[in-house]
């Protein structure tokens, strides 16, 4: 049978928070017996967006990660619940039944994602119920997907096999697959939220004036192997994105026939690296080139 899945494209989220606000609109001050009891007015957005930025002025990347209940196929909250307080529906949706879950704080603690909230006033564990009360009435998508202006949040109602195919084809990921909970909330471009970049701006003197060096070939090497290449753009900029957070030592080599080749060692430890002014030296005479063996290093401008 067809089951519900949520696909969030991290590259399309721009922090408008319409999903968060639509969720608040739906669940604060409303009661949906069997699905959800009212959400607290403040402090517990069942869909929330985390901000992240990396890089330094003027080369930065900003990304956002909407998170919510993952509606896991192997839900730890279900294992922790007593008296049928958590239900895994045939359509994939996990519901914390408000009428049965009162006082069961262990349901909150069981979720490794921190996606279950404790409603102090009602003594209830609560999470986003995939707007199941609306889907059951014929809605085709959730409030958040409907309110999302960039279509960063989309609902897929497909057979599991079909979903598996989509996941493989489009390279979708889930948060913390190592938890083994089999989430039904997938992410596209998740790497954007986690990875780092190495970038820089290349310049050199042309006809006596410092100019951006357009079209230089930049190679990114790790352990002596080229891992990526790029051409600098009109502003002399290059950027290698999608690098792992603690991927360590890299070497950049920059080649442009107008200049002496250059290389720079870069260490990636938790933060992206932007090399502001990579100044290329004038191309040495052939003899000099022979003695230096192309090992010129970057010269900062000024």
């Amino acid at each position: 049978m067809k089951k519900w899945n949520l696909v969030i494209d991290v590259a399309k989220c721009f922090n408008c928070n319409c999903c968060t606000l639509a969720c608040h609109d739906e669940y604060f001050d409303n009661e949906f017996p069997g699905y959800a009891s009212g959400m607290p007015k403040h402090g517990q957005n069942w869909i929330s967006v985390t901000q992240r930025e990396t890089g330094t002025v003027p080369m930065v990347e900003v990304s956002y990660l909407p998170t919510t209940c993952n509606h896991c196929d192997n839900p730890p909250c279900l294992a922790a619940a007593r008296d049928g307080a958590v239900v895994k529906r045939d359509d994939g949706i996990v519901i914390i039944v408000p009428e049965k879950a009162r006082g069961q704080r262990q349901i909150v603690d069981a979720c490794p994602y921190g996606a279950v909230h404790w409603n102090e006033e009602r003594q209830l564990p609560q999470a986003w119920p995939f707007d199941a009360h609306l889907l059951d009435k014929g809605w085709k998508r959730t409030r958040g997907a409907q309110a999302c202006p960039t279509r960063a949040m989309q609902v897929l109602h497909v057979e599991d096999d079909e979903m598996k195919r989509i996941v493989a084809e489009e390279g979708l990921e889930v948060l913390h697959p190592e938890y083994g909970t089999a989430p039904r909330v997938y992410y596209r471009n998740l790497k954007r939220f986690r990875s780092l970049f190495i970038g820089g701006s290349v310049a050199g003197e042309i006809a006596g004036v410092v100019e951006c060096v357009d079209g230089a070939r930049v190679t990114l090497e790790q352990r002596g192997q080229a891992v990526a290449t790029a051409r600098t753009d009109a502003y002399g900029d290059f950027r290698f994105g999608g690098l792992d957070v603690d991927s360590g030592a890299y070497r950049l080599t920059i080649a442009d026939e107008r200049f002496a080749p250059a290389s720079i060692d870069v260490e990636l430890r938790g933060e992206s690296v932007y090399l502001r002014d990579i100044g290329l030296a004038p191309r040495p005479a052939a003899a000099q080139e022979a003695t230096r063996g192309g090992a010129a290093h970057a010269v900062p401008l000024q």
Partner: peptide, 19 residues
């Protein structure tokens, strides 16, 4: 274009400001 209207965040919160 998408077959729907869009809503700005400052309107998506309207219910909470009405009440």
């Amino acid at each position: 274009p998408p077959r729907q209207t869009t809503v700005a965040p400052h309107s998506m919160c309207s219910k909470s400001t009405v009440y």
